[in-house]
Design a protein around this nucleic acid. Structure first.
Length: 793
RNA sequence: GGGCGCAUAAGCUAGCGGUAAACUGACUCGUUUACACCGAGUAUUCGGAGGUUCAACUCCUCCUGUGCCCACCA
């Protein structure tokens, strides 16, 4: 019977989580108040990509930002914490294609977008549930998707505004191009990949003399426009101004000098083809060389290449090498490994192709960009170097057009005859020019009636860099001003150069303000030091962990990693969280087992005052850490105070008094226990929101005002007389208790064994007000004075 | 090649100019009036070499290892 009773009372995190989740939702505990006078704290929540389910990295980083938000909420802020999903890119396109069994390219764009919205309507609640399940305290009524109508309108507004500000250019220029995806590619979308290649020494001719040029890309010979050597290179400087004959193709190109040719590399001679790489482009510009395109946007050889026309790049390379060999024009071949730029999405080598693309012109702002980065408060601070490093290495204006099908459309039409750009009207946004009519019937410039739509789409970062506007513009205009600039942008370090950088740029170009005051950068979750990936099969599903140990345990684990540091997933760390949950439940049960609520502070016993003084220290440390976004430190302070001081020592000390004390002694203990536990519950509420809510509702609600612990005020120091050496005295008491336990342990006796304790004269004086409690907690028959000694009886 | 991190017990991590710490594990015990998902105790430690300092795990320099970002594409 007793056992049964006990089991019934055991804490079930499954039930508890379910109960409080629906309570929070029903009671709007986390909703942003539109007419509150409280100060606002606004968060530019990262919208996760809908491409599957939440992974452990999400669970970790969203928990971390949630700790901070919950702290701020308890500090009295009106929290603006929206939730979005990022759906206008390839991952969602692929997922919808798969689930709906369609091909995006075979559908009309608006039909696919609609299908996508339908899909999201079905799937989003399931997807979002994972976030709700780990206790993320967003206002779930402030929701957006980066492909929804509202986001498209904001993104297109951004385009119109940048156009108005003269920051947009449509240029017919060489730009990075992916022959596989057949789209222009932005600098940020390019990755490094080490590939095997061949360094070919091939023969150019000046009259009868042979010139050996080393190249990995002989297929670009038809696009060769010159041969360079370094000005100091004595082997070649007499050739200046002469012409060299290009092998196989037999046209002549000038031999020129340029600092950028490295005498150490290959033979010291390099051919310039427009465009093999970035240097080729610089040379083309610097020496006003002609432009010859050997490769088409499809990744095939152009008509320039004569008999090789139509071959794929790699096929042509093979053929040309074969022909060079046959004509004795290939002198040597060396296998090398070199790093090339590839498109991050498909791994295809990037080509430079002349095409017509839209750019945001911003290279002229590099100095300002550095300033903007400095204005931001970075947590941890060193992450700002990633931003500076990126700005310093910027080579290209921002290419924002993608020759893809699914995404946010350009709000643009053109006149087919004179190429005049015709922009959508702001009030008509969002538009899809392939469906919607242009706002004019004829070209305002040449009066032509032939108006054609822009078929390209805006790069996904063009839209996601608008999340501060997308989210805040969901609110009435009167509130928007208070929400922007936002307070906090949380995100991971891998997309500083993408999302963070682009958002800063947009905000500065549109509003001449930084989008937020602070940014917190989270690290990666690894598994035995390695990045988790499906191919390695080392994925941890947070859903399973939660079912096994509870959401509070996952969050407890997430709170043990410092901001910005990668950290390793270890199941036992989650177990530690589960132990904490169990411990605080049990400690609470004990405290309230025979406690009478004391609203007013009674006359406190010295021991209780001393303990509260130590609690105040913890409150101060934890608060300071949280103000600095150092949730890990804040948790550590509260958590270790709970175990070491509250459970291991204070509870043991007061036990006897609670059972056997007189009224005054009991009252003092009751008050101290209640205040200490109530403070601890609130200190841990941001980290473990479920169990703390459970405890609050069960034991504290009837005496306190707030509907939820998460709306309670963050604990403040308890008013007591503190004196300077409180800490030393408390530490000494804990130390003596420890020594006694050690003595009993070494004597292999029970902790309840009786002892005779001898304290030094100094100790006895220092601890004169604490001797009764000390006697009972150590179970001393008597406390003598003399040399420190413990006799276990 | 440039930039930024990291290196602390068997594992994972705190910490910091003043005689090293939590958790897990190991070992030795104890326990039934909060908690066996318990309690107590024991052992083990600051990558290497210099330097600054009365004092360095902590600051500086170099090295080694490791991670990320950027560049290198002839």
């Amino acid at each position: 019977m007793a056992l049964e009773n006990k089991q019934n009372k055991q804490y079930s995190f499954i039930e508890s989580e379910k109960k409080w989740k629906s309570f929070w939702e029903k009671e709007n505990i986390y909703s942003f108040s539109r007419n509150s006078k409280k100060k606002i704290f606004s968060v530019d929540t990262p919208p996760p990509t809908v491409s599957g389910e939440m992974h452990i990295g999400h669970a970790c980083s969203y928990s971390q930002q949630d700790f901070i938000v919950r702290f701020k909420r308890m500090r009295g802020f009106n929290i603006f914490y929206p939730f979005g999903t990022d759906d206008n890119g390839l991952p969602t396109e692929r997922l919808v294609e798969k689930k709906k069994n369609v091909k995006a390219k075979e559908m009309k764009r608006d039909a696919f977008v609609r299908l996508c919205m339908d899909f999201l309507k079905e799937e989003l609640p399931k997807f979002i549930q994972d976030w709700k399940d780990i206790g993320i305290s967003c206002d779930w009524n402030i929701l957006y998707s980066t492909i929804d109508k509202h986001s498209r309108a904001v993104s297109q507004w951004s385009f119109l505004d940048l156009h108005k500000k003269g920051r947009l250019e449509r240029r017919d220029a060489p730009s990075m191009w992916c022959p596989e995806c057949k789209t222009g590619v932005a600098q940020v979308e390019v990755q490094d990949k080490e590939l095997d290649s061949l360094f070919n020494d091939i023969v150019f001719k000046v009259g009868d003399k042979e010139l050996i040029v080393a190249t990995t890309r002989p297929e670009l010979l038809p696009a060769c426009v010159s041969v360079f050597y370094h000005p100091s290179d004595k082997r070649y400087n007499k050739l200046k101004g002469k012409l060299a004959k290009v092998p196989l193709f037999n046209f002549e190109v000038p031999i020129m000098e340029d600092e950028r040719a490295d005498p150490e590399k290959g033979t010291g001679l390099v051919m310039c083809c427009t465009f093999g790489d970035q240097t080729d482009m610089e040379w083309q510009k610097a020496h006003r060389l002609p432009i010859k395109m050997a490769i088409t946007p499809e990744g095939k050889m152009s008509e320039l290449s004569g008999k090789y026309k139509g071959l794929l790049i790699k096929e042509a390379r093979k053929e040309i090498i074969k022909d060079l060999k046959e004509n004795d024009l290939l002198r040597n071949q060396k296998a090398i490994k070199h790093v090339v730029n590839v498109h991050e999405r498909c791994g295809t080598e990037i080509e430079f192709i002349k095409s017509r693309q839209w750019f945001v012109r911003y290279l002229d702002l590099r100095k300002d960009m550095l300033e903007w980065g400095k204005e931001l408060n970075w947590y941890p601070e060193h992450m700002k170097h990633r931003y500076f490093n990126w700005v310093n290495g910027l080579q290209w204006d921002w290419l924002i057009s993608n020759q893809r099908h699914f995404g946010v459309a350009f709000p643009v039409w053109y006149c087919q005859d004179c190429d005049e750009v015709i922009l959508a009207k702001e009030k008509d946004l969002p538009v899809d020019p392939t469906i919607d009519k242009a706002p004019v019937k004829e070209c305002p410039k040449c009066k032509s009636k032939k108006i054609i739509p822009e078929k390209d789409i805006l790069n996904t970062w063009f839209t996601s860099s608008m999340t501060p506007q997308i989210s805040t513009r969901l609110m009435p205009e009167s509130i928007q001003k208070k929400l922007f600039p936002m307070d906090l942008r949380p995100q991971a370090h891998d997309i500083i150069t993408f999302w963070l950088f682009n958002t800063v740029i947009k905000s500065r170009l549109h509003f001449n303000k930084n989008p937020w005051k602070d940014t917190i950068i989270s690290g990666y979750v690894t598994r035995e030091g390695e990045k988790m990936s499906k191919s390695k099969g080392n994925i941890i599903r947070p859903q399973e962990v939660r079912e096994k140990y509870g959401a509070d345990s996952i969050r407890y684990w997430a709170a043990s990693s410092k901001l910005g540091e990668d950290f390793d997933y270890q199941e036992k760390d989650v177990v530690t969280g589960a132990k904490f949950v169990n411990k605080i439940i049990n400690a609470t049960k004990f405290v309230f087992m025979n406690l009478k609520y004391q609203q007013k502070q009674p006359k406190l016993l010295e021991m209780d005052r001393l303990f509260l003084s130590r609690l105040n220290q913890t409150i101060e440390d934890s608060t300071k850490a949280f103000e600095n976004y150092d949730y890990a430190r804040a948790k550590l302070e509260a958590d270790s105070f709970f175990w070491k001081n509250f459970c291991d020592n204070y509870l043991e000390i007061v036990k006897n008094r609670i059972y056997n004390g007189n009224e005054g002694e009991k009252a003092s203990a009751y008050y101290t226990l209640y205040q200490a536990l109530y403070s601890l519950v609130r200190l841990m509420a941001p980290i473990t929101p479920f169990v703390t809510e459970e405890i609050y509702q069960e034991y504290f609600r009837k005496n306190e005002n707030e509907k939820s612990v998460h709306n309670c005020v963050w604990p403040e120091k308890i008013t007591i007389k503190e004196s300077k050496n409180d800490e030393t005295v408390w530490e000494r008491i804990v130390e003596i208790i420890g020594k006694v336990r050690q003595a009993k342990s070494e004597a292999k006796k029970s902790m309840k064994a009786e002892i005779i304790l001898t304290l030094s004269k100094e100790d006895k004086t220092l601890l004169k007000d604490f001797l009764d409690d000390l006697k009972s907690v150590t179970n001393s028959r008597e406390i003598k004075e003399g040399n420190f000694n413990i006799i276990v009886l």
